[in-house]
Design a protein around this nucleic acid. Sequence first.
DNA 1: TTTTGGTTGACCAGAGTGGTCTATTGGTGG
DNA 2: CCACCAATAGACCACTCTGGTCAACCAAAA
Lengths: 215, 215
Amino acid sequence: MVITKSFNNLDADKQKRILNAALKEFSENGYDKASTNRIVKEAGIGKGMLFYYFKNKEELYYYLINYAVDMMTNEYFSLIDMKEPDFIERLKKSVQVKIAFYADNPHVNNFLGALFLTDKLELSADLETRFEEMQRLGFSILYADIDHSLFREDIDVDKAFQLIRWSIEGYQNELINKFKGQKVTSIDMDPVLEEFDEYLNIFKTSFYKQEGDTQ
Amino acid sequence: MVITKSFNNLDADKQKRILNAALKEFSENGYDKASTNRIVKEAGIGKGMLFYYFKNKEELYYYLINYAVDMMTNEYFSLIDMKEPDFIERLKKSVQVKIAFYADNPHVNNFLGALFLTDKLELSADLETRFEEMQRLGFSILYADIDHSLFREDIDVDKAFQLIRWSIEGYQNELINKFKGQKVTSIDMDPVLEEFDEYLNIFKTSFYKQEGDTQ
DNA sequence: TTTTGGTTGACCAGAGTGGTCTATTGGTGG
DNA sequence: CCACCAATAGACCACTCTGGTCAACCAAAA
């Protein structure tokens, strides 16, 4: 990564404004159709500055990939308790972390998601391995050292993992759609988390061994 | 809807090529950023023809909305067996219908999905009501006359519906991603449907009353 | 031979593209 | 007070792409 010293010396707020604007633009339109004009307008800076901070569109894009991967690993993954052996409990906590992360970085997830769907052939080898490492890390953070014995004997645990994960994703998307346009910080999360718990408890009562079950 | 007689008299293949190209372009880029140039290239027709068939971009878009809603109601919803009282069984069948529908109309779902997320303020009142009716129909096709008594007493049936629906959506997305770029017709669906059944059977064993349960 | 419906792509004005550069600001050191 | 310099804005550049038009062409019918 080239220096971009000038950008790194900016006050944190401005940095974030620019990065969020750029992440949003790229994740919504893809590399080619992303517009630097829209980025500077959204970020509230002059056109010249973007190319003062980053030598061109491409370098900005690479910077964003590094940034997004860093944020994901340091501000999200690292906060999840991998000691928790109960899959559903671990998920409950990870979702709370995710909400806080999303409030600060509303576009990092979408950006990385779009990057995942993109043909990565054109990425530098270094970036690609970093990205793949991040994916592996995300995987193990969800599944490593999970206590399989909590699940009923008559259901396939790996498939159950998937079902639970997909359900959470679906619930998330529904929330994002429902609260579209509202500031995350302005939303009262308590009833949301409560409802979320109810959903997960259904999985607990139906996928887990119940007290009194013959082992 | 304006006549567009010239377009309706085209042979069915060409119509479909044009409609599919347009549906794809609009669903991937939204109305403003959709390009008529890309549509005609993808459809394999001259630029002039598009504006010979449709008077302008806007009319094409409205035609597509009508078309997509029609297809959805007549070629998809109408083929689903609403007599089946078992929620999961009904879903199993509806997914098979959906796969066949998707093979013929790979972009209708995405187009309507994008339309749903769009701010519908700008749509004509007529189109909007048609669209909403379609949504209501889709809802009742899934949920009407479902036998709730199949479910265990200790879980919230409506929430269970959601969990199952989200799981199916997640599985679908995974498939779409996995087979991205391949022609749907070239895919061997048997193992897919088998795996799909296994997932749904997990729900059956865990959400439904089991034989021997005290009622 | 003329007419007619279908078809193409060159072409248009205007908007948008990534990127450059000049002019200006405000602060700092001498 | 001057000289310097990093930071900043946005007018501007050549170029591409936009939705839409239109003259020319073609095959078949009359």
